[in-house]
Design a protein around this nucleic acid. Structure first.
Lengths: 201, 201
DNA sequence: TTAAATACCATACATTTGTATGGTTGTCAA
DNA sequence: TTGACAACCATACAAATGTATGGTATTTAA
């Protein structure tokens, strides 16, 4: 990983920015156009950047450039806004946006992000946090899950007690929700919390 | 956002996978090759996918495809392994890898991820967490920062007390570190913690 | 039953793109 | 002072790529 000249650094930065903005790398001519130079000159710079280990390239492939070291595998997941009340659908069409996460933060078939509102899971999960949720139809006892109760989405810990299901927040201020046997059908298990993101300050 | 036929879904999925794997979208012929069909047929499918709102395209631009809706802006940041002892450099060349984060999780000039080892900041930050750090030379009083003390990197909360600087973990088991005036030069302020990721279970 | 959409084939062509060549000028360390 | 590197010009060409055309066959909704 050799040192770069100022010009080479400029060009590498441009390729990075282009990649982030468009989702694919620039062609030689696009780089040339941006710097007001010729494609052959860009080719010279690319050669240097490849030799110094900052870029990789697939020969004869259009836009076949990739940064080195390559970013770790990523995962694009939908992010949903805080769903306190209303019609909590949690279907991809109604996502707030889609964000990229490191793949190791989002393992599983179907994963999504959920903005948290409310303190019922404090201090484990706070209002303003974003939880990473793996969609699944069962949640192990004691784990934090996302549930649909009375057409509302809530974050709770699941426990079983005789024939009843208990949904308990970690915050002792909130009283646990008891769902009796005959009402189990009304309980919707959406998924399990597999990670927490908390912004600080 | 219309419904897709099974074939169209297959092709959209392939484009997604290709994009994640290579960092750029496939050409018509690459899609055609994968499905054993002709480029013209792929063009037909792309037309349908664009009409139904799942893809965008730049005319006459090679690999000018992008997913719709586009993922939120992202940021590629280096991730460093747990630095309990040893030679804690925290320079990009020694990063464990680079990961993509949502841009709104990584605001600031220079941001990086750090794996946490040790319980001195419990229960705020636990061993196994990954903290998002903004590199800066000052840390506001009471904020969590990353510091270099005696050639070791630690996570602590910073306080001032007369002429001394106090580095305090949230975990009361650990005794605060007092750095006296004459030793201030030995204290390295690396950055401020701006976010926490915690894997669950 | 008629039009629209789906899902292909086979061929063709213009544009974009990667790449090579040979040249000039300047810097900088051996 | 000689050779390696940097940074560019100007031109050229083959390969990759996007795109269009006119087909065929089947399914689907009006």
């Amino acid at each position: 990983m050799n040192l770069l000249t100022p010009r080479q650094q400029e060009i590498l930065d441009y390729i990075r920015d282009f990649q982030d903005r468009y989702g694919y790398p620039p062609s030689r001519r696009e780089v040339a156009g941006h710097f007001g130079i010729y494609p052959g000159s860009v080719q010279d710079h690319l050669k240097a950047l490849i030799r110094k280990g900052h870029l990789k390239r697939e020969p004869n492939r259009s836009r076949g450039l990739s940064l080195n070291p390559a970013p770790a595998p990523l995962r694009i997941v939908p992010r949903y806004g805080a769903v306190a009340a209303g019609r909590p659908r949690l279907v991809p069409e109604e996502a707030e946006d889609r964000v990229t996460l490191p793949a190791d933060w989002a393992r599983g078939e179907e994963v999504f992000l959920l903005r948290v509102q409310g303190e019922s899971m404090a201090p484990t999960i706070l209002s303003g946090d974003q939880v990473i949720v793996r969609r699944q139809e069962q949640v192990p006892e004691g784990a934090v899950g996302v549930f649909r109760v009375d057409n509302e989405v809530t974050l709770k810990r699941l426990y079983k007690e005789a024939d009843n299901i208990l949904l308990k927040g970690d915050n002792p201020v909130f009283t646990p929700l008891v769902i009796e046997r005959q009402d189990h059908a009304g309980l919707g298990i959406i998924g399990q919390v597999i990670g927490i993101y908390r912004p600080v300050i």
